[in-house]
């Protein structure tokens, strides 16, 4: 029982209760409704969410809206009490008197402990359900291996003949399980329109489920600071109908840039596109990376290129050990041959 004198002198009604009865309740509720109306219409009419392009984003947006609703409710209550108190209880400058010695009110304190507990419980339960749903694939998912490195993405399709690409191609309405790993430092995979995000961590394998629901061409962003070129470690996620996706896979397997192809030129071209293209522009390989120098503008000598690939330097990581000697040889040949 709080000490103090809120019960003093007036039977069952405390000062607090009397204050509340004096029209304050009406004023408080009116202010709260006005604040709620303004904030809710801003939240509702301003287009502040990214496009929703996956089933997982559905769940995320559901949690988001429920939580935003609860937050706006709490905000409106707090704002209405502050605004009302600020105007109603402002002291005149010459007023030296003290306010009434209200030390507490057990009932109120129980209410504002219990109500927030209930509200966060709602958020927690809903979140746990959505999380479990977003963690599970619809049907048997297609697996895509994602390799992140400074400052490029590489996607491998083991169920489609090991096709490799630097852009993520996905069929619509089918769950894809991304299996992420990192070569050097931590990176993070994010497509805002899909909602889902997952770090790629050196030494461990992480996974994430994505079920695209819209055909389109979306941003694919690294969101974990990974060094000099972090802001530019970007590519695209392209969602296409199943038929289009199958056609793309077929094309890749027949000629364009797959690991399964043989023959020096295409092999080196594919290797360049997947390993170097994230950072370097080279028109012959169709890459447009902006981190490192534009190789179209440079005249390259074989020994310099070999050293640069092996040892790195100037912000470029060393590739010795990551690429075999013969791979480096073919890259050197491809680069010095194709840029002269």
């Amino acid at each position: 029982m709080p000490r103090g004198s809120i019960w003093q002198g007036s039977g069952p009604f405390s000062r607090l209760d009397r204050a509340l009865r004096r029209g304050a309740v009406v004023a408080l509720i009116s202010i709260a409704l006005v604040v709620a109306a303004i904030t809710t219409s801003i939240a509702y009419f301003v287009d502040w969410l990214p496009e929703n392009a996956s089933e997982e984003r559905d769940g995320i947006d559901l949690v988001l809206w429920v939580t935003v609703g609860i937050c706006l409710f709490v905000f409106s209550v707090v704002a209405s009490v502050s605004i009302y108190a600020g105007f109603r209880f402002r002291a005149r400058p010459d007023d030296d008197s003290d306010g009434p010695p209200i030390h507490g009110h057990t009932g109120l304190e129980i209410v504002w402990t219990a109500v927030p507990t209930i509200l966060v419980t709602i958020i927690a339960v809903l979140s746990a359900i959505v999380l479990a749903e977003n963690d599970s694939a619809k049907g048997k998912p297609m697996v895509v291996e994602v390799l992140a490195q400074q400052y490029a993405w590489q996607f491998t399709y083991p169920e489609n003949g090991g096709v490799k690409a630097t852009t993520l191609y996905l069929p619509i309405d089918r769950s894809t399980k991304l299996v992420l790993s990192a070569r050097d430092v931590i990176h993070s995979f994010w497509v805002p329109e899909f909602g889902q995000k997952q770090d790629a961590v050196p030494g461990i394998v992480t996974t994430i489920i994505i079920t695209p629901t819209k055909v389109g061409n979306f941003r694919l962003i690294c969101t974990e600071l990974c060094g000099l070129g972090h802001a530019l470690m970007r590519t695209r996620a392209i969602v296409m109908p199943q038929a289009g996706f199958d056609r793309w896979v077929r094309q890749q397997r027949q000629g364009g840039g797959g690991a399964t192809t043989t023959g020096g030129e295409t092999d080196a071209k594919g290797l360049f596109a997947s390993t170097c293209g994230g950072c370097h522009t080279l028109s012959k390989a169709g890459t447009s990376g902006m981190v490192g120098p534009n190789l179209d503008d440079l005249s390259l000598n074989p020994e310099g290129v070999r050293q640069q690939i092996r040892r790195g330097g100037g912000g470029m990581p060393p590739f010795e050990g990551q690429l075999s000697d013969s791979q480096i040889d073919s890259l050197v040949q491809y680069l010095t041959g194709s840029t002269q």
């Binding site: 607090l16 009490v81 209880f89």
Partner: peptide, 9 residues
């Protein structure tokens, strides 16, 4: 907020 209530702010 309740401390503000009925106070002489």
């Amino acid at each position: 907020l309740a401390t503000l209530w009925e106070g002489k702010i």
